[in-house]
Design a protein around this nucleic acid. Structure first.
Lengths: 335, 335
DNA sequence: ATTATTTGCTAAAACGTTTTTTCAAGTTAA
DNA sequence: TTAACTTGAAAAAACGTTTTAGCAAATAAT
């Protein structure tokens, strides 16, 4: 099968201990002669030796590896985060493996367990709403991890999240500053706290501006499997019956079908309805008219979470909870 | 540290071999009594035992794991493929780990090597253009893998790719059928064969329709780090100076800035310029006017590549090269 | 000329599993 | 009653590393 250290030992006539020491760059500090070192290195190339990390990690007790569990791989937000996390982790000598849970609790749990069984040194997790028990297990097992974007009540864990309340507030405030008074948003039927916080920010901004909260302007929708037809009828009714003049979209997944509807029925943006969307999206600027959006601090989130995770891996047991504000509102206008 | 089989052995007063047999469901076939089996299973729960896959895999010689190396994680195409691959692999009892190379040869090589060092049972690879040597190494080492989307000349390896030539031909034929005669496309400066094939398809369609190939309508651009400004000036010049009446976009990455330009300068689509884009994109249909696109057989690609990979893992050494046609042209019109 | 130190390398245990072989005790057959 | 099985479980080797302790030979110190 694959070439092992034993093969190199045989090839060079040395012991496997000597070979291992050289291969790990501990040759000179272990009083291995230059000649021997060179001989091993030549053999390594000649035989095309590749270390078996299963064996190496088993013995060493760590893998230099991080698992990133994402709730939705098709969300550009997470992908950008993943890309930066990978780069940052590499700076510290860690490889990152990615896995997607499709917002499915069971899958999320399975992916985390899978990573743990393969003994990743730590995890970064964008958890699904029902995965709190796995998270608690990780805490009990003292496995280093950082929650990203999603968080839980009564769970004391490292986390890097957005200021969902503040950002939503800002978004709605923006709409109000544009003279909008009947502002709609979809309220998700989910336990995910960050969605609740967005809703709270929405309500607070209304209140602080003397606008009464109208439940009819916040139709509830399921968090998963959103039916575009349902969104379409909501959007139409909101505009036609409820006289909505502004939309605050809390996610890409509600923004997309809503915008499609707005375009399809040729509602004028922003003349007839103003729109702010929470998640930024590279395609928004390609739409005509392009869509105003909250810019998320993706870079910071990624950098911070890697920092925290590696600190935890290195034994820091102090829990840190970082809340990042939305960077700004990127205003875009029709051309 | 973590609970091991040894702990269960101690807890139950049994030997580690007995515990292992029970844990692997080989209790009854190994003549372990019902009582003992139950005792072990209770201990497993009580101690919250999780197997160490490093040790298990080291001993067993396989990991039940597949590595998926993607050239660009931010490309929706690959993400959709990844999602389906994951689902299919799970059906066969395999876990999939994902890694992105950002179209960087060195990174691609490193990720593949990393997977190999962790002894994944097989790989699915959307290779970067300069990664041919790693691929050849895999062949030499007899490591099962399937090339996806990207392929190489003179490399005899399992692969699942699109019919790039035929699809491009189809796209250009579509534009011609709409009465277009001056059709532009960007020609990538890359060694990636599938891009060359698309270019050939473009040329062939022109030729078969008696349209002379005009090099000035196919400005060369770098494969990486596309400057939107460069695209913008190309697009403008193509329309204003070269009287282009149709665009065939070979990738998302050229389509996006081009469309942005078309929108920004308010060229009428499709009245003034017709557009077909190679890669499908969920956001195209949200643009106004929405964009006509070639629909790629993502599902088939994923399913087929997993099938082939698992067959290879199971010892099938016959090389299979699958070429899938684009499903259809999804025509979309302005509302 | 002996003892002490350094040099260069190896032996062996350990990491946590899996799996084959072995073994004692109980059961059945003759 | 003894030989031949069967049952239930354990011992031990193996997977490919890493790392500590150790050991002989060479060199240095006294």
């Amino acid at each position: 099968m694959a070439i092992t250290i034993k093969d190199i030992a045989q090839y060079t006539g040395l012991s496997i201990s000597t070979v291992s020491l050289v291969l790990n760059g501990k040759g000179s500090t272990s009083r291995i002669s230059e000649d021997t070192i060179k001989k091993v290195q030549e053999a390594e190339l000649a035989l095309n030796y590749k270390p078996n990390m299963l064996a190496s990690s088993l013995r060493k007790g760590y893998t230099n590896t991080i698992g990133f569990v994402v709730s939705d791989v098709s969300n550009p937000f997470f992908i950008k985060v993943a890309s930066i996390i990978e780069r940052e982790a590499a700076n510290f000598g860690y490889s990152v493996f990615l896995a997607g849970s499709d917002e499915n609790d069971e899958k999320c749990k399975a992916m985390i367990q899978n990573f743990v069984n393969f003994r990743v040194d730590g995890l970064i997790i964008a958890a699904t709403s029902g995965s709190i028990n796995v998270i608690n297990q990780l805490i009990n097992q003292k496995i280093p991890f950082v929650l990203l974007d999603r968080y839980f009540k009564n769970v004391n864990a490292n986390s890097v999240v957005m200021d969902n309340y503040g950002s939503a507030y800002k978004a709605v405030q923006y709409l109000i500053s544009k003279g909008r008074k009947r502002i709609a948003t979809f309220s998700y039927e989910t336990d995910l706290l960050h969605m609740h916080d967005r809703m709270s920010g929405y309500k607070a901004a209304l209140k602080d501006n003397g606008i009464r909260f109208d439940k009819r302007l916040t139709p509830p929708i399921p968090f998963l499997n959103i039916d575009p037809m349902v969104i379409e009828s909501h959007v139409r009714e909101l505009i036609e019956v409820r006289n909505v003049d502004g939309f605050f979209f809390q996610t890409n997944r509600t923004a997309m079908p809503s915008l499609q509807t707005l375009f399809h029925y040729q509602y004028k943006i922003p003349e007839q309805v103003s729109v702010v969307s929470y998640h930024d999206n590279e395609y928004f600027k390609l739409m005509s008219p392009s869509i105003t959006a909250l810019v998320q601090p993706i870079n910071e989130m990624a950098v911070k979470s890697i920092q925290m995770l590696i600190s935890a891996i290195n034994g820091n047991t102090k829990i840190d909870k970082v809340v990042l504000p939305a960077l700004r509102i990127e205003e875009r206008v029709s051309v």
